[in-house]
Simulated assay, not measured.
Amino acid sequence: MYVRPAAAAAAAFLGFTLTLLGGTASYAATGPGSGATTGTGTGTVRAALGGPVVYAHRGASAYAPENTLDAIDLAMQMGFPWVENDVQRTKDGVLVVIHDDTLARTTDVEQRFPGRAPWKVKDFTWAEISRLDAGSWFGDEYAGASVPSLRQYLDRVQRNQQRLLLEIKKPELYPGIEEQTLKVLDEAGWLDERHVTKRLVVQSFSADSVRIVHGLRPDLVTAFLGTPTVADLPRYAEFTDRINPWHTTISADWVAAVHALLGAHGKAMEVDTWIVDDAATARKVQAMGVDGIITNAPDVVQEAVGGF
């Protein structure tokens, strides 16, 4: 289990301190258009505070069912202000927070709707999905946890005073999901200056999706999930601020090549790597110079690298 009082207390203190300072050491903290240039953004603050930013992947998902309100509440209780989630769309057009494009792995949909294989998210209404149990698969203590709508999720993150790394999942399945996601963010109060500059990053594995988001809201911090070649990096820098790769695909030289470029807002580009759940790998990517680590076990990573 995650019981690591010293690590959690240190993370909570740093999170509280950074809130008082008006942000985090992430790229979002300084905000688009602040005039920062290479060497004046994340790296300086990260070095001063002792480690990369730690993002709780799908919430504290090593210890609670992923992408549920329980998982983000637990991340908050553990002292981690940044949470990551995945957004998809129901048959009747409601945005929901779930990773897979099928409901089978993380809910009881097969028992409730046995004749509707392959149980795709896009084939079920919000009313149907909201009745599913999204917690029992993880543990009896989470029985009855539900798949949250994006609006419910945003409201809880706001209540917890957390920050959000939002992934638009499989946009090819959901035409127009970029515009709709921005609409829900706006309705929930997440597109004001404070949220946009300090508390929100939007990412996707789809370069087209990231490009669309940047075009619709040029003030938003965006990230591309993947590992472009060094030769291709300048093309991504035109519409994104971060490149977020799988940790097995990177080297110190590649990270340095990303940092050498100015992103869409004229600042040094950043690297947040995933999914790192063990101390040895966390220290390895820290030595490569990454700006952030996305993890299911944020306490393990924080303890290993002194992150925040």
Rank of each mutant, 00 (worst) to 15 (best):
Arg4Asp: 14
Phe16Ser: 10
Leu20Gly: 08
Leu20Gln: 13
Leu21Met: 12
Thr24Ile: 01
Ala29Asn: 05
Ala29Arg: 07
Gly33Tyr: 10
Ala36Trp: 05
Thr38Ser: 09
Thr40Gly: 05
Ala48Tyr: 11
Ala48Ser: 13
Gly51Glu: 01
Val54Ile: 13
Val54Ser: 03
Arg58Thr: 00
Ala60Thr: 00
Pro65Phe: 07
Glu66Trp: 10
Thr68Leu: 08
Asp70Val: 13
Leu74Trp: 01
Ala75Asp: 00
Pro81Leu: 03
Thr90Gln: 08
Thr90Val: 15
Val94His: 05
Val96Thr: 07
His99Met: 12
His99Trp: 14
Asp101Gly: 12
Thr102Asp: 13
Leu103Tyr: 04
Arg105Gly: 05
Asp108Ser: 14
Glu110Arg: 10
Gln111Asn: 15
Pro114Cys: 06
Pro118Glu: 06
Asp123Arg: 04
Asp123Gly: 08
Phe124Asp: 05
Thr125Asp: 05
Trp126Gln: 05
Ala127Arg: 15
Arg131Pro: 02
Asp133Phe: 05
Asp133Cys: 11
Asp133Thr: 03
Ala134Gln: 04
Ser136Arg: 15
Tyr142His: 15
Ala145Leu: 09
Ser146Ala: 08
Arg151Ala: 15
Leu164Ser: 06
Leu165Met: 09
Ile168Lys: 08
Lys169Leu: 15
Glu172Val: 03
Leu173Met: 12
Gly176Val: 06
Ile177Cys: 13
Glu178Ile: 07
Leu182Cys: 12
Val184Glu: 04
Leu185Cys: 13
Asp186Gly: 12
Leu191Ile: 11
Asp192Ile: 06
Glu193Asn: 14
Arg194Tyr: 14
Arg194Gln: 15
His195Tyr: 15
Thr197Asp: 11
Thr197Val: 03
Leu200Phe: 04
Val201Phe: 05
Ala207Glu: 07
Ser209Glu: 11
Gly215Val: 13
Asp219Val: 02
Asp219Asn: 11
Leu220His: 02
Ala223Val: 06
Gly226Ile: 03
Pro228Glu: 00
Pro228Phe: 02
Arg235Gln: 10
Glu238Tyr: 08
Thr240Tyr: 08
Asn244Asp: 14
His247Cys: 13
His247Val: 14
Thr249Ser: 06
Thr249Lys: 04
Ile250Lys: 07
Trp254Asn: 06
Val255Trp: 08
Ala257Val: 02
Ala260Glu: 10
Ala260Phe: 12
Gly263Gln: 03
Lys267Gln: 11
Ala268Cys: 11
Ile275Val: 11
Val276Arg: 01
Ala282Asp: 10
Arg283Ala: 01
Lys284Thr: 11
Lys284Arg: 15
Ile294Asn: 00
Thr295Asn: 06
Ala297Ser: 14
Val300Tyr: 00
Glu303Gln: 13
Gly307Val: 07
